[in-house]
Design a protein around this nucleic acid. Structure first.
Length: 430
RNA sequence: GGAGGGAUGGCCGAGUGGACGAAGGCGGCUGUCUUGAAAACAGCUGUGGGUAUUACACCCACCGGGGGUUCGAAUCCCUCUCCCUCCGCCA
């Protein structure tokens, strides 16, 4: 949510942001009109209330019954007028709020302009896209041949885009999760285990609703929604709280499954495990002082890069242009790892600074140490790597000519010392 | 799922239609005293919004959320949420 004062004092800043995001700036004027109406109504309502309060106090002291009755009558009429105006006011405020919830964050000044993802900027590439001395197989061949990836049974029990990991495959994913969590803990993040279902308000706070309604799963009867990313419960953690400056920064890491309907991307990336309705992710999340968020963003990017580097994966850092920037974010870097089987750069992480945008929606503030007025915190989030894609990259980069897959060194402690994933002998186990 | 009891400021805890933004206590801050500290004493101690001659001014709202009754609601009524106790079910 943007500060309403921006629309009063600097509407052109908002218009430019919307244009840069390839959106219609018309809504800015609509907000201004509603805001003006709101303030007029507040002025009227409060003037009447002040009058009523004052006269009501007098009534309790008036002895003369006729005078008393006259004042009561007069105040009854004032009460009716207040009720009418308040009804209008509530409507205007609800409308205004709905409008503000649909307006995205302002891109940071340093974000390059671009109309869509084709204009994102590669900041740097670390490593060389690997060339294997034999023809690289895609993970869906590798995984099935090894007996660690079962598409047919996933489809059978749930449906299209679902799969089952088996044996060393399931264990490899679990190893990645455990290893990443431990790495992030070393990097200074505190582990959190959160609910995987949240209420609507929590999704609004994180900026997922109302915009991404179509991409979310929910219980049809209750106000319970499956999280599309750990960012949602982690943003909600401090909803409606006032932190002390001394408490900041707060840095968290959490593993959660993520559930996404992905209606809009039906038909894309149908092959393999790159895009599913359910996937696992380890997330990093930071609450900090406004003046620190750029530094924290750099640190989080470095932490995510370390994850790729320790896995021995070739990756590149991409800065998102204005047209591709996420709804709630002011600046975002994507991390993409090279995977020789699918022959593409896989987006495994998105590291974003939301500024105070989510904090406003979630109403998360802090009290400055000098005792001044409360301010909104800044929030940042970044995947410590999305699991299916990291799994793809590991399988495809570490494959050998005979179809086996070497387990990256760092993961072996979580793999019971297994160094190479070999084909499973017993077909039933697969 | 059934029955009952609760929800008040940073915390504890009073209030029962007007004098209540809310007693009292604790904690915190400031001052006096002190070489310093403690103690004692005194004062202060929430959030949001509106107005604006931007004056640490005035006004409005907030006692779990929403709605109602009333000239006036922390207080009465309805409803929702959450917590506690007991029963049932359950990994």
């Amino acid at each position: 949510m943007l500060d309403i004062n921006l629309f009063r004092e600097n509407p052109d800043v908002v218009r430019k942001a919307l244009r840069d995001r390839q959106m219609d700036p018309q809504i800015v004027s609509t907000v201004q009109v509603q805001d003006e109406r709101r303030r007029q109504l507040i002025l009227q309502v409060e003037t009447l209330k002040a009058e009523r309060n004052q006269v009501s106090k007098e009534i309790s002291r008036i002895k003369d019954p006729a005078e008393r009755q006259a004042k009561i009558e007069a105040m009854r009429l004032v009460g009716d007028r207040i009720a009418g105006l308040e009804k209008d006011l509530h409507q205007v405020e609800a409308d205004l709020n709905q409008l503000l919830l649909t307006i995205p964050n302002l891109p940071d000044e340093q974000v390059p302009y671009g109309k869509d993802e084709s204009e994102n900027r590669v900041v740097r590439t670390v490593g060389e896209p690997s060339t294997l001395p034999f023809e690289a197989r895609p993970h869906w061949e590798l995984g099935v041949n090894l007996g660690i990836l079962d598409f047919e049974r996933g489809v059978k029990i749930t449906g299209s885009r679902f799969y089952v990991l088996s044996g060393a495959g399931a264990r490899l994913q679990r190893a990645l999760i455990a290893w990443m969590l431990d790495l992030h803990i070393r990097q200074g993040y505190t582990e959190k285990y959160t609910p995987f279902m949240v209420k609507e308000q929590t999704l609004i706070a994180a900026g997922q609703l109302p915009k991404f309604y179509d991409n979310l799963y929910r219980d049809a009867e209750e106000d319970l929604w499956m999280v599309p990313t750990a960012e949602v419960p982690l943003t909600g953690l401090y909803m409606d709280e006032i932190l002390e400056e001394a408490d900041l920064p707060l840095a968290f890491t959490a593993y959660t499954p993520c559930f996404r309907r992905e209606k809009m991307s039906a038909g894309r990336d149908v092959r393999g495990i790159k895009r599913g309705h359910q996937f696992d992710k380890v997330e990093m999340y930071v609450y900090c002082l406004p003046e620190d968020s750029a530094d924290k963003h750099a640190k989080m990017l470095a932490d995510a890069e370390e994850t790729c580097a320790l896995l021995g994966l070739t990756y590149r850092v991409v800065e998102l242009c204005t047209g591709d920037l996420g709804f709630a974010m002011q600046r975002t870097y994507d991390l993409e790892v090279w995977s020789p089987g699918v022959q593409e750069w896989l987006e495994v992480s998105s590291i974003s600074n939301a500024g105070d945008y989510q904090a406003r929606r979630a109403n998360i503030r802090y009290r400055p140490a000098d005792g001044g007025r409360t301010r909104f915190v800044h929030t940042l989030n970044g995947s410590g790597l999305g699991l299916p894609r990291t799994l793809i990259a590991v399988l495809e980069n570490y494959q050998q000519e005979d179809g086996s897959v070497v387990v990256p060194e760092v993961l072996r402690p979580w793999m019971g010392g297994v160094e190479v994933i070999q084909p499973v002998e017993n077909r039933k186990e697969a």
